[in-house]
Every structure is written in structure tokens, then in C-alpha cells.
Design a protein around this nucleic acid. Sequence first.
RNA 1: GCCCCCGUAGCUCAAUGGAUAGAGUAAUGGACUUCGAAUCCAGAGGUUGCGAGUUCGAGCCUCGCCGGGGGCGCCA
Length: 607
Amino acid sequence: MFEAERSLLEERIASICRAEGIPFLPLSWRPLPFAGEWGISTSFFQIAAEEARAGRGTGKPVPLRAQELAERIRNQLRGLEGISRVESVKGYLNIYFETGRYARRIIQTVLETGSEFGRGAPKGERVMVEYAQPNTHHSFHIGHYRNAILGEVLARLLEFAGYKTIRASYPGDIGLGVITVLWIYDKFYRGQEPEGIHERGQWLLKLYAEATALLEPKANETPEQKALREQYEAERREMYRKWDAGDPYVRDLWQRTREWSLEELRDILRRLDIHIDVWFFESEVDEPAKAIVEELVQRGIADDERPQGGPVIVRIDEKLGLKQEKYRTNVILRSDGTTLYLTKDLALAKIKFEKYGVDRSIYVVDVRQSLHLQQTFAILRLMGFPQAEKCYHLGYGFVSLPEGAMSARRGRVVLFMDVLEEAIRRVLAVESEKSPEMSESERRRVAEQIGLGALAYSMLAVDNNRDIVFDMDAALSFEGHTGPYIQNAHVRANSILKKAKREDQWLDDLRTVSFDYDLTEHEIELIEQISRFPQAVEQAAQEYRPLVMAAYAYDLANAFHSFYHAVPVLQAEQENIRCARLALVAAAKQVLANALHLLDIQAPEAM
RNA sequence: GCCCCCGUAGCUCAAUGGAUAGAGUAAUGGACUUCGAAUCCAGAGGUUGCGAGUUCGAGCCUCGCCGGGGGCGCCA
């Protein structure tokens, strides 16, 4: 927020160094680490170390010399506008802001720019985020949810940081798993169709688990059982063959049941406020994938072993000229002529680059697929796509259950809708005692916002690369380091403002608000947190880490809650202080809302 | 055999190479006649898995161990 001041300061220090014959290195600035005091600091260890290396040192230990330098600089930094004091401590140069002046600037900027506060300058790059890739003919479970919320928040962060952002979903709508469901449906459940979007989607998952049980070899099975199982297996293979050949009956069955899953997916995404721009389907990239195989063979990138009855492969390390194995060798076309996951991803990448003009491509995919994606990117490099350098796999740890990994095959999954229902139930139990005056429909609406807030935050507050063992009580906690904690700060801010508005039109007085009184440390802490928002946005986007924003939002809420308890606003005795604090509360509410929005968490007015 | 991730307070997790490693939670004590207690305040809780190295400075970088998880040519 204060880049201009910072670079001005840095220039002053650079010129002092020049005048004194001290080597100058670019300084790194950080916020003061002291609570309740606002300013920035830098250190002189690097310059002192540089002096020593260059043989121009004083022979003193680096820390001592750094302190000496800090003192010398401090002594010459006089008459800085907007700076209340400068101190040198342990090699650090601490610069304290004149709080009144900066507070006013921050608060006014926030109130004038509103929901735009923190938005980065346009970056001139088009980025596509691919996430929400559940398979059809299954049901959306809590692992899919982590993927969806992570991808969505990343997309929001990138967009807000200034990238042109395209959201892409890539459902797996074909494959052996899908065919398995078609087979059992056609064999035992033909014509049946449960009522309700989610009931239907979840029913397909049940069919899948049931089919898997029928098709799996069992220990000590009788000859009759074995024969039956093999017959089922033959039927399933036949169904896949028919699908591949475009058999109208199978295709129609596929289309219909596929739509059940997609309807459920669309409904869940709608509830999560996720709006996908581009839908890719695995079934649609099958043909382009086959074309790519031929292209790679033609260009000598792939080795064709079909004449020997084998597959088409790419010896990636060899083609890249690597001596150590890294990407290994991969099959891109089965010996029966069908494509694989990797092949389809190549085709999809080509479409992203060529049809959608994507400069930067992010894949939000389970970390277990890391090697496959690295192989994909490597082959894209071999193919000569410059964007391959800007393909990035945002891998995340998978979500498991206390009893072990989730398994669709065994039907051992935690469904997202079940968690959401439980979340709402729990919030309602709290709400009915906290907000008895709220209407029934309003209460239900807010309960969903709070429940989803808790769930989203529990996913986002853990770094991407960590696995999560899903624990219902932890995920749906409403106290402490949680989503509702942040939402509650927003609600409390709103509550003060609502009361204030009845009494006067403080908004009109905004231009005359000033912070020229003695601010409490709680106010300073809150203002400082507010001022950090733009940088948090930038950092989270650059590092592709929603966690950075999640942590920021908590810190901001924490500063607000403390302020709220310690500092009277409406009860402030002096009119000018009351006005300033109201403006501060309004700004805090705005930034809380902005941060929550980036986290795909609703900011309710009451809860 | 090779590669990737993780190891920090009892538990769950933070910490752009920088000042005294921080939160939540559990346990303890305190604050509702007050702008909403889904909150706040206080104390307690640590050999950052082990050992070297680089650096003025390492939880963070490098190497080696130990422990846990994941991946490795016709699954996705």
C-alpha cells in the first residue's frame, strides 16, 4: 500500500550510502513485528556482510557493523514527511508511521474503492485454471470438494490480482468406471430412476460399488460363481466396445445417465458459487488425442511399436537428452488403439493454447498425479509449445477418512451433500439460541452460509501439499480459527454500522474524518492489518496459495475482535473520535468482505 | 531400485534466510446490566525427528540418516 514511500526511503538511504562510501544493496522491507505499532523495517546485515566480503570492512563482526550502519543512516534520516520516528536496533532500521496521517489515507482509500480495494493492476496474461474434474456416474465427495474450493479460490485470487482468468472444468465422462455403471444399470436396473437430483447422482455411486463387488474375483469361489463373473466381465467389455463403436442404444444410455451426474455437479457448483467458463469432457478429446498420437509419431517424438503388436510410447528422458531418469517412458496409445489419460491431456492442452489463447495454465489436481502431469508438460515442451513452461500443477494432498482412504469402489466415501446437511443442522442448533428473532427462511439461508464457511475455511487453512484426514467435528467447528470466526467479525462490524446509521449520517462526514487523536494500539493494529490486504492478495496469487489469504483473513478478523472489545465506537465520548472509529469499522467490514469473497465464503450481515 | 511430499507445543496447523518460532484446540483462571460472549483477556505449554554443512544469521537452503505417506510404460 505504501510502495511510493518505501522506494523514496530506499533512494534516500542509497544516496546516504553513496555519500559515505558504503556499498548499497537493495533493501527488503517488512512490516514492524511489534503489535500496536505501525511502520516498516529493514536490516543492514547484508550490506555489512558485503563490506566484509569485499575486504572493505572494519573488521567488526557483521551484526555489530550492521547496527553501526543502521545508526549512521538513522542519524541522517531527518525531517521525513509522515514519519513519526526512526530507530536503530540490533542492526535493524525501524521506521514508524505518523499514524493519523496514514490511517486517514488507508481508511479513505478503502471506503472509496470498496469491493475493488486490493485489486492488482492488469497483468496482461491470460491464465486458465482447470479444476472440478470429478468423474460422472459417481457422486461428488469431500475430496472433490477440496479440489473445487481450492481451484475456485485460486481463480478468484488470480483474477483479483490482475490476470485474465478462465475457469475450466474437465469431468471424466468416459472410461472403464463409467462403463461399469452402464453395465449394471442395464442388466439389473433398466428403466429405474430415483427422484431428486442428488438421490440420482448418489444412486449411481451405489451401483458402481455393487458392480465392482460382482466383478471382483473372490476367494474360494465355486466354478459356477467364476463362470458368472467372467460372463459379467465379457458383458462389460462388450458394452465398452459398443460405446466406442457409437452404438445408439449404449450411447443413449450413456448420455442419459451422464446427464444425471452432471445435473448434480452443476447444482453443487451453484451452491458453491462457482461459475465455470469452459466445460471440457474427456469423451470429447478422444478423437483429437488420436490425432496427436499420429502427429507425434510423424515428428519422431513418439516410437511406434504397433508393428510389433505393441503400443505407441514416448521415451521422454531420451528425447529430452536427460541422462538420469526423470520423466521416464510413457504409453500414449494402447496396443488396441485406444487412448489414455495422458494422451487426452495432451490434446486438451493443445486446445487450451490454440483455441483459448492461454498463456499460463494451472492444473488443480491431486498430488498423486504429479508424475503424469510432469510427463504431460515435458511432452508439450517436446512438441514445441512455449506455454509449456507456464504449465503448473497445483498438487494438493488427498482427503482421507480416519478409517483410511476413500474408495468409490467400496462405496466408502463421505459425500459432500451429507456434510453440507450436517453442517446446516449444526449451525441451526446454534442459531436458534443466538438469533431467535431471525425468520425461518433467513435462518436457513444464513445457516448454509455459515456451514459452508466453516467447511471451506477448514480446507483452505491447510497448505496445499498437506493431506487432510477428514474429521466432521473439526471441519464444522464454529469457534476459534474458523470461517465463522471471520464471518462473525463481519457481522459485528455490520451491527455497529446499522445502529449508527439510525442516529446520524456519518457517511457524509467521511471526507472530514481525521485520526488526529491518540489512537489506541488496537486501532493501530486494525488499521495496519487493513493496509496489508493488497499485498496478501498479490502474495497468495503469485504463490498459488489460498492459505496466504486464509491466514490474512483470520489475522484481520482477530484484530477486529480485539478492537471491538477494547475500544468503544458508538459510546466514544468525542464526536470526532466516534466518526473516525465508525469509518474504521466500515473499512474493516469492507476488507473482511473482500477477503471472504476471495475465499469463496459468504459475508452475512447477521448470523 | 529411483523420484516426490511430510516430520514444529498433548492434538490440528502457521511462520518472503532475519529481532523473543506463533495461532487454534484441550486443560487452568478471568470478562456478558455494555456497539452481539460463534467473542475477548491472562498464565502455562518448544532440544522445530537426528547429525553434519553453507551463511553474519537456518524451522526454512545443501548432504546423509530415521520415521510416515504417495508415485514409478498400455488405470485415471
